[in-house]
């Protein structure tokens, strides 16, 4: 029998493959550790000075000799701003996704999906400028003035002079910005539900809505939660457009009370003030501290998202595999 020469494996390429992969994976860890270390050391000064009141206080004074920093109004501002944006964008996004996956004729589905992805790609400064120059006047004239005239005296949330540069406008623009993200991911998730599930529901005499409710929604629940959390992550961290529209109050005045009052978020105060803060000063440490809070918030959102998705997946094991 003829002896055939075959190569004796390839230990070198295997080693290269191994170390390239490990190296690439290490990069992620290195970056995250650097971020945490830099944010912590950079803000150490403000934690020493203010202690817990950096989280709970509402003073914000960068005048030398009277320096005092408290992030509470901006933490609240971020939560309120993102909360309103989510309340607007979730029903809108799911509506779009439902239409695209369940109702839209194929001819309409593809172009509409492309338009949505296009919206997701518009830079936030463009949304901000449009909001500042155009959209603000719509909000002011058509929503804020009428609501203020009707309820302004009786309720806190519609109090204040409607000026258009406020929490409401910033939240609505933010909602417009995150709708494309949530909608396009949700659409993909709903389209991934196998047709056999829909047919099973149709066979039981379900209407289109019932098919969605009993076949599509339970199957895609975990994915939809994931899509929502991605949107929330973006809402919490979004900087440019919010900074341009939220009115940029500081200190106790930034506590969100009226929808028509100016506010401030963690991201926007950093964008507003980092150029004014001098190197090595307490002001800069405070801004880095804000960054640390924002980082931890984003981290918490992600952890909660993973737990939620895991819980939903566990409650119907096999659904994702089926």
């Amino acid at each position: 029998m003829m002896a055939i020469k075959m190569k004796k494996g390839s230990p070198i390429t295997d080693k290269i493959f191994k170390y390239v992969a490990i190296g690439a994976a290490t990069y992620v860890l290195v970056i995250i550790i650097m971020i945490v270390v830099n944010l912590t050391t950079g803000s150490a000064q403000v934690w020493q000075q203010e202690g817990i009141s950096f989280l709970t206080g509402s003073d914000w004074n960068s005048v030398e000799g009277r320096e005092s920093y408290g992030a509470a109004p901006y933490i609240m501002g971020t939560l309120v701003n993102a909360g309103i944006a989510m309340a607007i964008s979730i029903p809108l996004s799911f509506g779009i996704a439902m239409f695209l996956s369940e109702l839209a004729p194929k001819l309409l589905r593809t172009p509409l999906a492309m338009v949505i992805e296009l919206l997701a790609a518009v830079p936030s400064v463009v949304y901000g400028l449009w909001g500042l120059l155009v959209f603000r006047t719509y909000i002011q004239n058509w929503i804020e003035v009428p609501l203020h005239n009707l309820f302004g005296d009786q309720s806190i949330i519609f109090a204040g002079t409607p000026f258009g540069l406020d929490i409401l406008t910033a939240s609505i623009i933010l909602a417009i910005m995150i709708v494309p993200t949530i909608a396009s991911i949700s659409k993909e998730i709903m389209l991934a539900v196998p047709n056999s599930q829909r047919e099973a529901a149709y066979m039981l005499g379900a209407t289109k809505w019932e098919v969605f409710r009993i076949a599509v929604l339970p199957y895609s629940k975990s994915g939809l939660i994931g899509a929502t959390i991605l949107g929330l992550g973006r809402a919490v961290g979004e900087t440019m457009a919010v900074t341009m529209l939220i009115g940029n109050a500081t200190g106790a005045a930034a506590f969100p009370s009226s929808l028509f009052g100016p506010g401030q978020t963690l991201a926007s105060i950093m964008a507003n003030e980092f150029a004014e803060a001098s190197q090595g000063g307490l002001h800069l440490a405070a801004l880095v501290g804000i960054g640390l809070i924002l980082f931890l918030m984003a981290f918490a959102i992600n952890v909660v998202a993973h737990l939620l998705v895991a819980k939903v997946v566990k409650s119907h094991e096999g659904a994702v595999l089926a």
């Binding site: 196998p194 056999s196 047919e199 099973a200 209407t207 409650s315 119907h316 659904a319």
Partner: peptide
């Protein structure tokens, strides 16, 4: 909808609702 209710169907691959 009434029709599909009167005429039941069993599919090639079992397709129970996974969350139920």
């Amino acid at each position: 909808i009434i029709n599909r209710r009167k005429i039941g169907m069993v599919f090639q691959k079992p397709n129970p609702f996974p969350t139920m």
